[in-house]
Each structure stands twice: as C-alpha cells, then as structure tokens.
C-alpha cells in the first residue's frame, strides 16, 4: 500500500473510530451505573439520524443539529423512565430484556413512521468537498469528526469530573445505596446519564449520516453492537476506555480491509472476534477496573 493510501485510510479509521467511541461512551456510562447493557442505545443513534434528516429540511443546519441532539437526548430519558426505571429492583436480566424490547420497538416504530425506504441524508457541501494535500485527497469531514468528538468528550469529562452532578454519577457507579443515603436523587442522576449518553449517540448519528448518507430504521443495529464491543474492549464503565476501544475497533476494521481486501466480506465479524479475544484474555477490558462479585 502506498503511503498516501495509508494516510487516507488512517483518517478513515480515525473517523469511524471516533463515531464508535461516541456511541460507546453511552453504553459504558449506563453499564457503569446500572450494570446492564442498554440494547436500545444503537437505536437512539438511529433516531438522532432521522431527527436531523427532518429538522434540516426546515431549519438551518446548526440549529437542526441542536434540535436533533436535544430530541434524541429526551428520547433516551423517556426510554429510561418508561422501560428501565420500573425495573430497578428487578433482576438485571429483566432490564436487559426490556432493553431488547425497546430496541425492537424503536426499530419497528421507525419502520412504521419513517417507512423502510432509505433516505438520503443532508450533507453540507463544504464537508464533503475533498481537499487535496499533495497527492492525498481527504474530506474535511475526516478532520471534523475527530475534532468534534474530541470536543464532546472533553466536555463530557468536564461534566463527569468537575461538576457536582458528575460527582454524583461517579458516586452512584461506586455504590448506589450509599449515594442515596447521602441525599442524592438517584433517578434524576440516572436520567441525566441517559440524556448525556443519548446526546452523544445522536451526535454520532448525525455525523454517521453525513459520512454514509443513507438513513434507514436499522442503521443503528451494527454500529450499536460494535460500539458496545468497543466499550467492552476499552473496559466497560470507563469513558477513557470507551474512546480507546472505539478508535481501536475503527482502526482494526478499516486497516484489516485496507491491507487484505479479500477480507472485506468478513468486516462485520472483526468486531466480534476482537470481543471474544478480549473477553478471553482480559475480561475487564484494556482500562477497566475489576468489578468485584458481591457475595
């Protein structure tokens, strides 16, 4: 492979990896607090992509993005309120099944409301006009996505590590009962976690729709699974881990296909193979802490 092509692929990997990272953060935060896989997270990503599609038809683009992110965030909070909060005291598997139910509900509701026809996403022209640097052609999007991701992640880290609600979040993930006794409104903080995670997923959905300009109700399934895997690989419960896992997964996927084009049919399997390898050798993930079993 020529070095030009390699650099282009590197940017591709960084773009896809950033998007996985943004989704993975939502999985990781929810798992860190509630210890269950929010299967519906990938579908919040899909909802975000649809919201921008409809909002951009009526509003200028930045405003539309804000509306889409806000809408998806609200959606995440509603899902938590309706489908997960009643099951807080139930076995975790119940919440997991409920999450699978929400996921299928959102997908099929999407099918009913938006129809199964793939819709063309709105692409602001300046983002997709390639820039040429010497012999390398790169879309501005490939710079923009990692940059936006970095800003969003820094913002999230600021919220989680520098504000009082963030302190409450970290505290809940350590010990939910003690946190409750300290006078923290658990449900409000959990709703906030869902809101933040969903907002990031929606941001990823918007950028994904610009990168791969087709939106359909099942758009979130594969990225959702892969982002969850990225969260596990990085160490579930850790925001840094989710980012690392996302970028790693994106790189593996893009580079493996770039170096061995004959493997492209297996692209969707890489993530699952990586997951199983990680689970075998380091079940806590790259940056995860050991979660003790409570006896």
């Amino acid at each position: 492979m020529t070095s030009d092509l390699f650099i282009q692929n590197l940017f591709n990997a960084l773009t896809v990896g950033s998007l996985y990272a943004l989704i993975a953060i939502g999985y990781s935060m929810v798992y860190g607090i509630l210890r269950f896989i929010n299967f519906a997270h990938g579908d919040i990503f899909m909802v975000g992509a649809y919201f921008i599609f409809f909002a951009a038809a009526h509003l200028p683009w930045p405003l539309a993005a804000a509306v889409a992110i806000g809408g998806a965030s609200l959606m995440g909070i509603i899902v938590d309120r309706v489908a997960y909060r009643p099951l807080r005291e139930a076995p975790r598997i119940s919440a997991l099944i409920s999450a699978i139910g929400v996921s299928f509900l959102l997908e099929n509701l999407g099918l009913v409301v938006f129809t199964g026809l793939p819709r063309p996403a709105v692409q602001p022209q300046w983002m997709v006009d390639p820039i040429t640097l010497g012999s390398i052609r790169i879309l501005p999007l490939s710079f923009l996505v990692p940059a936006v991701t970095a800003i969003l992640v820094l913002g999230l880290l600021w919220i989680v590590y520098r504000t009082r609600p963030g302190l409450a979040m970290r505290s809940i993930s350590r010990d939910i009962e003690t946190t409750r006794l300290m006078g923290v409104s658990i449900d409000r903080i959990i709703a906030m976690t869902f809101g933040l995670g969903s907002a990031l997923a929606a941001a990823a959905g918007i950028m994904w729709a610009i990168r791969y300009p087709q939106i359909h109700p099942f758009i979130g399934v594969m990225p959702g699974f892969k982002a969850f895997i990225a969260a596990v690989v990085g160490g579930i419960g850790s925001i840094h881990g989710a980012v690392l896992g996302g970028v790693l997964l994106g790189t593996v996927e893009i580079m493996a296909v770039a170096f061995y084009p004959s493997m492209s049919g297996y692209r969707d399997a890489f993530a699952f193979v990586l997951l199983i390898v990680i689970l075998l050798f380091k079940p806590t993930g790259l940056m995860g802490e050991k979660l003790e079993d409570k006896i």
């Binding site: 489908a83 099944i97 409920s98 699978i100 139910g101 929400v102 299928f104 509900l105 099929n108 509701l109 009913v112």
Partner: peptide, 8 residues
C-alpha cells in the same frame, strides 16, 4: 411494533 410492546 405490537409484538415488542407486548414483550415490554
């Protein structure tokens, strides 16, 4: 849709 609502 009805099916998933039923599961939930």
């Amino acid at each position: 849709v009805i099916f998933s609502v039923a599961l939930m």
